[in-house]
Design a protein around this nucleic acid. Structure first.
Lengths: 183, 183
DNA sequence: ACGGACATGTAATCGGTTACATGATTAC
DNA sequence: GTAATCATGTAACCGATTACATGTCCGT
């Protein structure tokens, strides 16, 4: 139930409409907590019902500008300081690794190589993104850079692990070993 | 929709009942793709409807032993070799980082320190687990060790990143910087 | 005889995704 | 005038979680 807190977090630095929030999600939280338009509007409705946000102003085209309330701020703080982050996530990338034995040696190798390449692409993409973002000095950019650094380190580890695993595959699945297994 | 493939993957090395699968999920896939009992049984029903698995034998207490079919094997291979793994996951740990500016310097520091400690605990837990698992030579253990290695590297990166971020916090939020910000 | 493990199933709820649906304002 | 952007909302569906519900076999 963190979309709620993502919205509260964004509203904590100033009022915004659902439409505004959607843009912010797309450009700064996309890699960390993606949200769709329909999700945002319904969440804003629920947050208003719960008293965590309130409509502060109305504009043209039915625009509703939401502002965080004291209760909302309290909820945000509570979530940030008292609630333990979820320790890990499902990974269909790793799930496939468990079943690598079902593939031919070459297919398995191709899978791991693909992971290394994807991680490398991601690493380069984030490095590029950092150059673009580095100029901003608003809080979201400053802390966004911390998150970005995490992404860079994570991508590097993924890349290096996949390369290691590919070598490991050779160790496990050489014809010699296979013969021993059967013998 | 990967629970389906997790089940197919487990059944690819031999028939099993829902109950059996549940045990395997708990002890070997728990960190990668957790599944609940109710989810497993309904997924087995759907897989049977789709022709990817079939009841191979019935035992005491209504036990139904499922076996993977050729269509199931084909689906598993397709998923492993053709379907691109999802590139990244939501992280409420990183989401909080974006809003660190809403906390006092000390609370923010405590958050990052907590992350470093949690990662360190996890690293030690996995290292211990590796000692236990290292003995098995069944495919699930062999490839499970690859996944475990990933977990170890991931935990190490998380720990080091959190320590880095804590120092970074000092850089950003020293009283000197604050004064400059306002000036 | 009885408790623990074995064994399967259903229902309610929740958060997220996709698609549908509508309309107002602004810049050219 | 008209296209792009601004702006909100609803409905159907899907996968995951939690709780409820039931019954059997085996070892002691």
């Amino acid at each position: 139930m963190s979309l709620r807190h993502a919205v509260l977090g964004l509203l904590s630095s100033g009022p915004a409409s659902g439409y505004d929030l959607l843009k912010i999600f797309e450009l700064s939280l996309a890699n960390v907590w993606p949200a769709t338009q329909s999700q945002l509007y319904s969440e804003l409705g629920r947050l208003a019902d719960a008293g965590f946000v309130a409509v502060a102003a109305e504009g043209p085209r039915g625009r509703k500008e939401y502002a965080i309330t004291d209760a909302g701020r309290a909820e945000l703080r509570h979530w940030m300081t008292e609630v333990e982050p979820t320790p890990f996530n499902r990974s269909d990338m790793l799930l496939r690794v468990f079943f690598l034995g079902e593939l031919d040696a070459e297919e398995a190798r191709a899978y791991l190589r693909g992971r290394a390449e994807a991680a490398d692409r991601r690493h380069r993409g984030l490095a590029e993104l950092r150059e673009v973002v580095a100029k901003g000095d608003d809080p979201l950019s400053v802390y966004g850079l911390m998150a970005l650094e995490w992404g860079l380190r994570f991508a590097a580890v993924q890349r290096d692990w996949a390369a290691w695993a590919e070598r490991e595959l050779d160790r496990i699945r050489t014809p010699e070993d296979r013969r021993e297994d059967q013998g």
